[in-house]
Amino acid sequence: MRKFISWTLLILVLLGGGLIYWKYYFVFGEGVKSGVLNYAVKKGNLFKTYEGKLIQEGFGTSKAGTGLTSNQFEFSIENDSIYRILEVNSGKVFDLHYKEYKGALPWRGNTVYIVDQIIQMRDIKAGSY
């Protein structure tokens, strides 16, 4: 009986570890988003994380599905060097590479989208956005 309990506990621990890895550490998707940087902030109660928002060109539907809203991409920022660039260049157009996870961790940020690279930064052209 002791052997059965040991094997059962080992299997449960391995399954639990696998689920935690899949939910919080497995990169579900990655890509590039472009838009005008609305803000970059450092915030948090216990864990201070870097957060930002891009305003993308075009319109989407509101959460209730009744009206139009601007397309917004809210993200967390991986490290302070990326944050420093974003913080002093608010209002410029950015192409940001991000990784998407299934769940957010409090020390990684408030969102499942983590920006890990700035691909391009440019000023807004006249007539766009």
Results as ranks from 00 to 15, higher is better:
residue 11 I to N: 01
residue 48 K to P: 02
residue 58 G to E: 08
residue 33 K to A: 12
residue 77 I to V: 15
residue 11 I to H: 00
residue 8 T to W: 09
residue 40 A to W: 10
residue 103 G to F: 07
residue 46 L to C: 07
residue 14 L to D: 03
residue 30 E to R: 07
residue 65 G to L: 10
residue 48 K to D: 00
residue 97 H to K: 14
residue 52 G to C: 03
residue 105 L to W: 03
residue 50 Y to N: 00
residue 25 Y to P: 07
residue 91 G to I: 07
residue 69 T to G: 02
residue 23 K to V: 11
residue 112 V to C: 06
residue 20 I to G: 02
residue 19 L to Q: 10
residue 61 T to N: 10
residue 22 W to P: 09
residue 44 G to P: 00
residue 123 D to P: 07
residue 125 K to W: 11
residue 93 V to S: 06
residue 49 T to S: 01
residue 129 Y to N: 05
residue 11 I to C: 05
residue 105 L to R: 12
residue 31 G to Y: 05
residue 69 T to K: 14
residue 92 K to A: 07
residue 13 V to W: 03
residue 14 L to F: 08
residue 87 E to K: 14
residue 105 L to Q: 08
residue 44 G to N: 00
residue 93 V to T: 07
residue 94 F to I: 06
residue 127 G to P: 06
residue 19 L to A: 14
residue 18 G to V: 08
residue 42 K to S: 07
residue 72 Q to C: 12
residue 125 K to V: 14
residue 11 I to F: 10
residue 127 G to M: 09
residue 126 A to Q: 15
residue 90 S to L: 12
residue 60 G to C: 06
residue 102 K to E: 08
residue 11 I to K: 02
residue 79 N to C: 01
residue 45 N to H: 04
residue 36 V to K: 12
residue 84 R to Y: 07
residue 19 L to N: 10
residue 36 V to W: 05
residue 11 I to P: 00
residue 118 I to T: 01
residue 61 T to S: 13
residue 71 N to H: 05
residue 114 I to D: 02
residue 113 Y to T: 05
residue 91 G to R: 03
residue 85 I to K: 06
residue 17 G to R: 12
residue 28 F to M: 04
residue 46 L to E: 11
residue 68 L to T: 12
residue 21 Y to V: 02
residue 12 L to T: 07
residue 1 M to A: 12
residue 8 T to Q: 07
residue 128 S to K: 15
residue 15 L to V: 13
residue 104 A to Q: 12
residue 101 Y to E: 01
residue 46 L to Y: 12
residue 75 F to E: 01
residue 32 V to P: 09
residue 118 I to F: 01
residue 60 G to F: 08
residue 36 V to I: 15
residue 2 R to M: 09
residue 52 G to N: 00
residue 100 E to W: 03
residue 99 K to H: 11
residue 75 F to K: 03
residue 30 E to S: 09
residue 62 S to Y: 08
residue 61 T to C: 04
residue 30 E to W: 03
residue 114 I to R: 06
residue 26 F to Q: 14
residue 15 L to M: 09
residue 55 I to K: 02
residue 55 I to Q: 01
residue 122 R to P: 05
residue 61 T to I: 15
residue 107 W to A: 03
residue 66 T to C: 11
residue 16 G to V: 14
residue 54 L to W: 05
residue 53 K to N: 11
residue 44 G to C: 04
residue 54 L to E: 06
residue 22 W to I: 12
residue 110 N to H: 03
residue 64 A to F: 13
residue 49 T to Y: 00
residue 125 K to G: 11
residue 97 H to N: 12
residue 53 K to T: 11
residue 50 Y to F: 14
residue 87 E to W: 04
residue 28 F to C: 00
residue 96 L to T: 02
residue 74 E to K: 11
residue 117 Q to D: 03
residue 18 G to T: 08
residue 89 N to H: 12
residue 47 F to A: 09
residue 78 E to T: 05
residue 72 Q to T: 14
residue 64 A to R: 15
residue 21 Y to S: 04
residue 96 L to M: 02
residue 70 S to F: 13
residue 41 V to C: 00
residue 113 Y to W: 14
residue 30 E to Q: 11
residue 14 L to C: 10
residue 113 Y to R: 06
residue 54 L to N: 05
residue 5 I to E: 09
residue 106 P to S: 10
residue 66 T to D: 13
residue 67 G to Y: 12
residue 22 W to A: 15
residue 40 A to H: 08
residue 4 F to M: 08
residue 3 K to C: 04
residue 42 K to W: 01
residue 8 T to G: 05
residue 46 L to P: 01
residue 48 K to G: 01
residue 115 V to Y: 03
residue 16 G to C: 13
residue 35 G to Q: 06
